[in-house]
């Protein structure tokens, strides 16, 4: 059986979901039998081929995140939102009910040495709020958890490859 191509990316997340994937330890070898990793922070490959599965960790906080999410949608047959931030916006979304100007002023101008909001044109502009992935692109599957456990990720991948409905045992389904 040819290996499925898997791309992964971390947007407005903490890389915790990627860490969790690495927690598979020796089971990673088993996973490597099933998938070929394409663009991913794990491979450090920056270009992207057409893939079977795309894992997105984190929500969309800035312009660049939106472009990457759209690229994943274009290149991947199945796009999966992985982890609490991708699914709901998560911790970064705590900013969402605060207007941007107020938010940046509080972070960069008040009670700090050398106040000034970073404004390099190279920096991607922030969105008005942090969007969960399903509000930016259509998502095929979601895996909640902060992070989802290594076992949950492995099971999730296996179910996707077997075209089975995603279903997690009680102990593996959690939102924190």
């Amino acid at each position: 059986m040819p290996k499925a191509r898997l791309a992964t990316v971390s947007l407005a997340g903490c890389f915790g979901c990627h860490m969790s994937l690495l927690d598979l330890d020796e089971a990673l070898f088993e996973l490597a039998e099933l998938v070929e990793v394409d663009r991913s922070p794990l491979t450090d490959i920056r270009t992207m081929n057409d893939c079977d599965i795309g894992f997105i960790e984190g929500g969309c906080a800035n312009e660049d995140n939106v472009h990457v999410a759209r690229l994943f949608r274009k290149k991947c047959r199945l796009v999966c939102a992985v982890g609490a931030c991708a699914v709901t916006g998560g911790i970064p979304a705590l900013r969402n009910n605060i207007p941007l100007a107020e938010l940046l002023a509080t972070s960069y101008l008040q009670d700090v040495v050398d106040p000034g909001i970073p404004n390099d044109p190279e920096l991607p502009m922030l969105l008005d709020k942090v969007y969960p992935i399903h509000e930016v692109i259509r998502v095929d599957h979601t895996l909640p958890g902060c992070p989802p456990s290594a076992q949950a990720i492995a099971l999730f991948v296996k179910q996707l490859l077997a075209h089975e409905p995603v279903s997690l045992p009680y102990k593996e389904l959690h939102y924190d």
Partner: peptide, 20 residues
């Protein structure tokens, strides 16, 4: 949350309101 677990809720399905 427990109800979500019981129902097998994997996502929030709708756009979030993020109220203040």
């Amino acid at each position: 949350q427990a109800l979500g677990y019981r129902l097998g809720l994997l996502d929030n399905h709708y756009p979030q309101f993020f109220p203040r």
